[in-house]
């Protein structure tokens, strides 16, 4: 890149504003526009600043409207272009709070501090709520329908998932903006309770998924004299149905805990499948 020369941030980013007039300029329409733009939060994702570029991109219409002074706008843009990373479904909540602060012409270091303090916890909550709860549940239900050839499976999945998704993206933008800095306090109090509730639902469902969706049975019959015993139906099913899936899941869990990569486990699983069918175990 031709633009490698480093910019002296201190020269441009000022804590106070040249034009400190406080004025409510953002309309509901502006907020919705920025919520739409937040869908491109990860468009310029990279390992140096992660979502920093997309974050600034989605805030731009608001920043332009709030900071009519050129130097103030430059200071705000450069400040926001730094490292940023959070969960894409919850980002609009941070945006709402930050926009309320920008409009109120809070000091830059305060805005930056709030932004950085919020992105970590929200990233963790988002992972627990969406990647580990909403997605497995909606996709699991959709897949169980689709597996039996029902066309409603994929459609139901996409519709239910996006009702939650877009309700959050737009709802949280307005909620964050209205709550302003007060929201930060209410978030801190319930962070742990929300993530605990999500984990309870998630693990209950994972327990059921393990029992339902892993297909791992013995196909071997034991010959004891003149008696034939079907190992799976005659023995294991009598003790605990789906014992093998349960044991194998915990084996994988243990391997992951020991620092093995998921790819190793995929390789191990393929080897087990091939060896098992070579010796006619399964």
């Amino acid at each position: 890149m031709a633009s490698k020369e480093t910019i002296n941030r201190d020269e441009f980013i000022k804590n106070d504003y040249e034009d400190p007039t406080v004025e409510k300029v953002l309309t509901k329409k502006d907020l919705n526009k920025m919520a739409w733009r937040s869908l491109l939060l990860q468009a310029s994702f990279n390992y140096e600043r992660m979502q920093g570029g997309g974050w600034t991109y989605s805030l731009l219409p608001g920043l332009k409207k709030i900071h009519k002074n050129k130097n103030d706008l430059r200071s705000a843009m450069l400040d926001h272009l730094q490292f940023f990373n959070t969960h894409p479904f919850l980002v609009t909540f941070i945006q709402g709070v930050i926009l309320a602060m920008e409009e109120n012409k809070e000091r830059r270091d305060t805005i930056r501090g709030i932004k950085v303090a919020m992105m970590g916890p929200l990233g963790g909550i988002g992972d627990a709520l969406f990647w580990l709860t909403l997605l497995p549940i909606t996709a699991g239900i959709g897949a169980s329908l689709a597996a039996s050839g029902n066309i409603a499976g994929p459609l139901l999945f996409v519709i239910v998932f996006n009702i939650v998704h877009f309700a959050l993206v737009f709802g949280l933008m307005h909620y964050g903006y209205n709550a302003g800095t007060k929201a930060v306090l209410s978030l801190k109090e319930s962070t742990k309770k929300i993530s605990r509730a999500a984990s309870i639902v998630g693990l209950t469902v994972i327990g059921a998924l393990v029992a339902t969706y892993i297909n791992f049975k013995f196909g071997i019959k034991i010959h004891a004299g003149s008696i034939n015993v079907d190992l799976q139906k005659g023995v294991i099913d009598q003790i605990m149905p789906q014992l093998l899936p349960l044991l194998y899941t915990f084996f994988c869990y243990w391997m992951l805990k020991k620092g093995r990569s998921p790819l190793t486990l995929i390789g191990v699983t393929v080897v087990i499948g091939i060896l098992g069918s070579l010796f006619k175990l399964f």
Binding site: L132, P136, I214, F251, I272, G273, G276
Partner: peptide, 23 residues
């Protein structure tokens, strides 16, 4: 048939990954 058996077991890896985070 071995790949088919492995494909049937494979979800265990995904579930274990979820458990590693949440357990």
């Amino acid at each position: 048939s071995g790949l088919s058996v492995a494909g049937g077991i494979m979800p265990a890896v995904g579930f274990a990954m979820l458990m590693k985070i949440m357990w």
